[in-house]
């Protein structure tokens, strides 16, 4: 074999796309920090944004990168929320261990349901994910489960201890805000690591061409289950976070609308690029807060309309449009 020089190797290395952490990644967090000082009124809203950003990021990993068309991602969110709630109620009010428990339950849910769901292809995946999420929703609502889940009343009455034993959750939601920001940063970094890893490249390959992937000797179902578990753990963290900052877990944390809205956020922002989840969730939650205050059903009308038009005219989402334009204007090179 011919001897390779450094330049050749470096040239080939450039052929591997990178998603490294750069200064752009700090922007959302800088923005969030600025908001704390200049728009303190909106801290609870900001906390809601962060919960949804974390959830949308987890969905992006499964759907945007892995091509798993999950309509039932709320199953992870809800499992995480109930896990964190029950942990706080019966075991310990310490928040970080609560999140860890939620993440483990999420990963476990992925490990149990993944092999069943991911053997299938296409529409069957959509239906199975939907059926599992609906089943869990019904299960939480049964009178047999009511002593545990609280049924339609939900879980409440639990306390969350101060973060690191120092920062207690205050009435203005300051601690909740920083706490959520920390969780989102953690979720984002995990996503980045996964996307950049050899596994991340394999995931993109599976989305592009699962048959070729098998013919490279890769057990596609097993890798997809791994992805489903990671994504499920992160989604459950988002659910756990929601339980901890709102101190309430209702049946609606397992409702289809949570899955549906996350899909809207992702497609609005742009799937398969992580930033899309951040932008989409931020825009969606901020707008829905304003609009829902005025008229929830008209807001639904607008969301539906935007979704239909987005599929037709902007399938790449907001971030995709920005990337297109900046490329066309020569700001960035491919």
């Amino acid at each position: 074999m011919a001897v390779l020089d450094r330049d050749t190797i470096n040239a080939v290395r450039e052929g591997f796309t990178r998603h490294r952490l750069s200064w752009i990644d700090t922007l959302p967090f800088l923005f969030a920090a600025l908001m704390y000082f200049f728009a303190a009124r909106y801290l609870p809203l900001g906390t809601q944004v962060m919960i949804q950003v974390a959830f949308a990021l987890s969905l992006d990993l499964a759907l945007g990168y892995g091509g798993i068309d999950s309509l039932g991602h709320v199953a992870f969110f809800g499992m995480g929320a109930y896990a964190a709630g029950l942990y706080a109620l019966y075991v310990s009010s310490e928040p970080l261990s609560g999140l860890a428990v939620a993440a483990c339950i999420g990963a476990l849910t992925g490990l149990v349901t993944g092999p069943l769901v991911l053997r299938a292809r296409g529409l069957t995946v959509v239906m199975l994910t939907l059926a599992i999420a609906t089943m869990l929703h019904e299960l939480a609502n049964t009178s047999a489960m009511k002593p545990i889940t609280g049924g339609a009343d939900g879980l409440f009455g639990f306390k969350i201890a101060p973060v690191f034993g120092m920062f207690s959750f205050d009435l203005y939601g300051r601690t909740a805000y920083w706490y959520s920001l920390g969780v989102v940063a953690f979720v984002f970094i995990i996503c980045k690591l996964v996307v950049n890893s050899p596994f991340g490249l394999a995931v993109r390959g599976m989305r592009d061409n699962p048959v070729r992937m098998r013919m490279l000797g890769v057990n596609v179902t097993a890798r997809l289950v791994t992805l489903y578990c990671v994504s499920g753990a992160l989604a459950a963290m988002a659910g756990g976070l929601s339980a901890q900052v709102t101190k309430l877990v209702g049946l609606d944390s397992l409702a289809f609308l949570v899955s549906g809205n996350a899909l809207v956020m992702l497609i609005l922002g742009g799937a398969g690029r992580l930033y899309g989840a951040i932008v989409g969730a931020t825009v969606f939650v901020a707008l829905s807060d304003r609009a829902a205050a005025i008229d929830p059903f008209n807001w639904l009308f607008a969301v539906g309309g935007v979704l239909i038009l987005a599929v037709r005219f902007a399938p790449q989402g907001i971030v995709g449009l920005i990337a297109d334009w900046s490329q066309r204007l020569g700001w960035v090179r491919r």
Binding site: R13, S197, F199, G200, A202, R204, L216, A222, V230
Partner: peptide, 27 residues
Amino acid sequence: SLTVAENVGLAFEARFGLDRRLWGRVR
């Protein structure tokens, strides 16, 4: 949707069993 380097790189990854590595970078 992947580059030529990534296409071939995936085959190397698969051969060395690296496709299950969640850490480290391909590059």
